[in-house]
Structure formats: structure tokens, C-alpha cells
């Protein structure tokens, strides 16, 4: 090998160049890969971090946001902040923590106007159309209204009161004479501003704003709600309810509609008591109560 090298002196610098280029390329690829992996790992947004109004869905947002902080600067309430390198949110991207400072839902939406790239979408012009997250009454065991008290604070502070949060009246089974007014969030109106979470009187809020992806389930795309289709169509999509024969009854019930209410007789026939007589007559035991409507 060394003999050939001495015959071709040009190969040494070429080899060195190749070696250096390969080292550099390898190093570069490794670093890029590391950065990529890191980014992938951290791209799941933690539940407490809520993006500003108009933010694109998380993966698009992370492609569009240049982390300049202009939205942070233009927020008049100091709601938004940029993620530090050690935060679980993508480095430098804007978010807010509702329990600390919620979004005040400015009508002119200055944060969205400030964004130079469109990571905050300017097609959002009505702040009540913002969907930053979704309030979830996650702890019914601690919520004062669920305990039968009249707290109502989350309902009162809601900027979309009576649409995003309503109070639903329920019977209070504990006292058996009072009503419970249960704060109920409606996903079609909740903006995720976080004022309910901020103002929950408990030391740890019973209502929390979560990213919609975390908070919401989803029906399969092919599901149709019969009652909605019926309302839209004027009639049921599958025709009238099928009438099925009622099984399990004697002949006297044949031909009765399945929907007909069947009530038990006022006096129960033959109480099941283990008497010597009952034991001697097996067909009159619990196997056949001889109950007939």
C-alpha cells in the first residue's frame, strides 16, 4: 500500500479531504439527527401549556412559529410567555398557563395581529371563535357545586357565559330536597381562555383548561346519530322502528307491542319462602314463580 502511495503522491491530500469531508458529514448528520429526535420527543404539548388564540394545530404551529416573541410583547395582560429551554414546551414558542394568567380575550386580538408568519392565523377575527383549549370540570368530587353548594364562580367569570358554561339543574340525592346546579362546559362555545380555571376557588382547580386534543374524544367518522338524522330528514333513515315479537312470555302476551309497558302485578304471587311444602313441590319453587302480568 505504502509503495502505491509513494507512486501516487496526489492520493494523500485527496484521502485527507475525503476523510475530513466524511467526518464533517458524519458529525453534521449526527447533530441534525439529535436535534430532530429531541424535537420529536418534545413535540407533545404538556396539558398545562395553552397556545395563544388562532394558533395552528400543534405540528403546523411548530413549523410556522419563528419564536420571535412579538405575540408576547403585544399581549396587554402579560398572559403569554416564551418557553425556556428546560420547559417541556418547544424552546422559545409562546404559551400561557391558565391558572397563572388566563387569556383576557381582547376583541382586537393583538397577539394574532403581531405574528409575522401566520403561526397565529389572522383569519381569526372574532375572539369568541378562538379555540385555545377546552375547559374540563375534571374533579367532580371537589367542585363545590357538585357538593350541592352555590359557588358558580367559573360560570360567572366565563366570558361566553351561558354558552360555554351553563348551570344544569339536577336533583340533589344527598339532601333529597335541594337542587344541584352543575357547571357544564360546551365545546362548541368554549374558547379555552382559562378564566374559569384561574378563578376556581379551590386550592387546586376542579375545572381546568386542557389542549383540545387532550380534552376531547371523537366519534368514529361513520357514526350517525339517529335523532339528528331524523330531524334533518323529517323521518328516520332506516324506516320505522322494527316490531319484534316479544319472547319469554306465555301465549297470552303474544301480539303485544314491544314498547307497551309491562307492569308487575300489585301483589306478588307466591312469595319465595323455603317452606317444607315448597320443598316438596319443586315446580312451585323459585324456578317458576308463576308470575303473570
Amino acid at each position: 500500500m505504502s509503495g502505491r502511495d509513494s507512486q501516487k503522491p496526489a492520493s494523500t491530500p485527496r484521502r485527507r479531504f475525503l476523510r475530513e469531508a466524511l467526518t464533517a458529514a458524519g458529525g453534521g448528520c449526527l447533530l441534525a439527527l439529535g436535534a430532530g429526535l429531541h424535537a420529536r420527543q418534545a413535540s407533545a404539548l404538556p396539558a398545562q401549556a395553552i397556545r395563544p388564540p388562532g394558533a395552528l394545530v400543534e405540528e403546523d404551529f411548530l413549523a410556522a412559529c419563528v419564536r420571535c416573541g412579538l405575540c408576547v410583547r403585544d399581549c396587554p395582560y402579560g398572559t403569554l410567555r416564551l418557553a425556556d429551554m428546560l420547559d417541556p414546551v418547544a424552546t422559545g414558542s409562546p404559551f400561557f398557563t391558565a391558572r397563572q394568567v388566563p387569556c383576557e380575550m381582547c376583541e382586537d386580538i393583538p397577539c394574532v395581529k403581531a405574528c409575522p408568519t401566520g403561526a397565529l392565523d389572522r383569519s381569526l377575527t372574532d375572539i369568541t371563535k378562538a379555540r385555545m383549549g377546552l375547559a374540563v370540570l375534571s374533579d367532580q368530587e371537589s367542585c363545590l357545586n357538585f357538593l350541592g353548594l352555590r359557588c358558580d364562580v367559573c360560570y360567572r367569570v366565563c366570558p361566553v357565559i351561558d354558552k360555554a358554561i351553563t348551570l344544569e339543574t339536577r336533583h340533589n340525592p344527598r339532601s333529597d330536597r335541594h337542587a344541584m346546579l352543575l357547571p357544564t362546559v360546551h365545546s362548541d362555545a368554549c374558547t379555552g381562555c382559562g378564566k374559569c380555571e384561574k378563578s376556581c376557588v379551590l386550592p387546586e382547580p376542579a375545572i381546568k383548561v386542557l389542549p383540545r386534543k387532550v380534552a376531547q374524544g371523537a366519534l368514529p367518522a361513520h357514526y350517525r346519530k339517529g335523532w339528528e338524522e331524523k330531524a334533518r330528514n323529517g323521518e328516520s333513515l332506516i324506516g320505522d322502528q322494527l316490531r319484534l315479537p316479544v319472547r319469554g312470555f306465555d301465549g297470552t302476551t303474544a301480539g303485544r307491542a314491544a314498547t307497551e309497558t309491562v307492569v308487575a302485578p300489585a301483589t306478588p304471587a307466591a312469595p319465595i319462602v323455603a317452606t317444607p311444602q315448597a320443598a316438596s313441590v319443586p315446580h312451585a319453587s323459585a324456578l317458576n314463580s308463576r308470575w303473570k302480568p
Binding site: A24, A32, G36, A90, T91
Partner: peptide, 25 residues
Amino acid sequence: NTRYWLLAGLMAATVLTGVLVWEWV
């Protein structure tokens, strides 16, 4: 020349992941 490879690498990583990976670090 490592910097140019890094520049190319971060651009490739950005295309592949669809997020601004370089801005992470």
C-alpha cells in the same frame, strides 16, 4: 466545512420532521 454540512443537515432534518428542529437548540 463542518458548518456547511450542519446547515445542510438541519435543513434536511427540518424537511423530514416538518418542524423547526434547529430552533430547539
